[in-house]
C-alpha cells in the first residue's frame, strides 16, 4: 500500500472505525486514542498490507487495541452505562426508537454488540465478522440473531409501557 493509499484509507475508514470503537468505549478520547493507535500500526506495516485488505486490517487492529485497552482499564464505565437505562423511570422513557435502540445496544453482551455493529454499520459479511472477532460464521449468525431478538424484545417492552 502506498502512502497515497494509506491516506485514502484514513479518509474512507477513520469515521467508521471510530464509530465501531465508540460503541464500546463511552469516553470519546479513549476511542480516539485507540483509533489513532490502530492507524499508527497500519502505517508501520503499510508496505506489507495490501490496499484491498487495509480496511479489515484496520478494524481488526483497532478491535484488538480496544480489547487491550479494556483489559488494562477494567473498571470501565461502559459497564456502568448499562444500568442507566434500567434506572430511568417510565416518565423519562424515550419515544424515539433510534435513541431507544442505541440505549438497548449498550446493554447487549460485547460480542453481540460488536457483531451487529459491524454488520449494520459497515455491512460486513458473517465471514468477515468471524475473521475479525475470531468466531465461526455460525457463531456470528447466532450472536446477531440473539442481538436482534434482545433489541426487539426491548422495543416491544417500551411499546407496552407507552
Amino acid at each position: 500500500m502506498t502512502t497515497k493509499e494509506y491516506n485514502e484509507v484514513v479518509d474512507t475508514w477513520a469515521d467508521g472505525v471510530f464509530r465501531f470503537i465508540r460503541k464500546n468505549l463511552t469516553n470519546e478520547d479513549d476511542a480516539r486514542d485507540v483509533v489513532q493507535n490502530a492507524f499508527e500500526i497500519l502505517w508501520k506495516n503499510h508496505e506489507n498490507v495490501q490496499f484491498e485488505k487495509a480496511k479489515s486490517y484496520l478494524f481488526s487492529t483497532a478491535y484488538h487495541n480496544m480489547i487491550d485497552f479494556i483489559r488494562r482499564n477494567k473498571r470501565m464505565n461502559y459497564v456502568e452505562e448499562m444500568d442507566e437505562g434500567a434506572k430511568g423511570g417510565t416518565a423519562e422513557m424515550q419515544i424515539d426508537v433510534k435513541d431507544a435502540i442505541e440505549k438497548a445496544l449498550l446493554k447487549l453482551p460485547e460480542v453481540q454488540k460488536n457483531c451487529i455493529v459491524l454488520r449494520d454499520y459497515e455491512g460486513y459479511s458473517y465471514e468477515e465478522i468471524g475473521e475479525l472477532l475470531a468466531l465461526t460464521e455460525s457463531q456470528v449468525k447466532v450472536y446477531i440473531f440473539r442481538a436482534r431478538q434482545t433489541l426487539k424484545n426491548y422495543l416491544v417492552s417500551i411499546h407496552h409501557l407507552i
Binding site: D15, G16, F18, K98, I116, V117, L155, V156
Partner: peptide, 16 residues
C-alpha cells in the same frame, strides 16, 4: 416491523 427497526443506523454525525 419491530425486528426491522433493529437494523442499526450509524450516527453520521459521529466522526473522527
Amino acid at each position: 416491523e419491530i425486528f426491522q427497526q433493529t437494523k442499526l443506523q450509524p450516527d453520521m454525525h459521529m466522526v473522527f
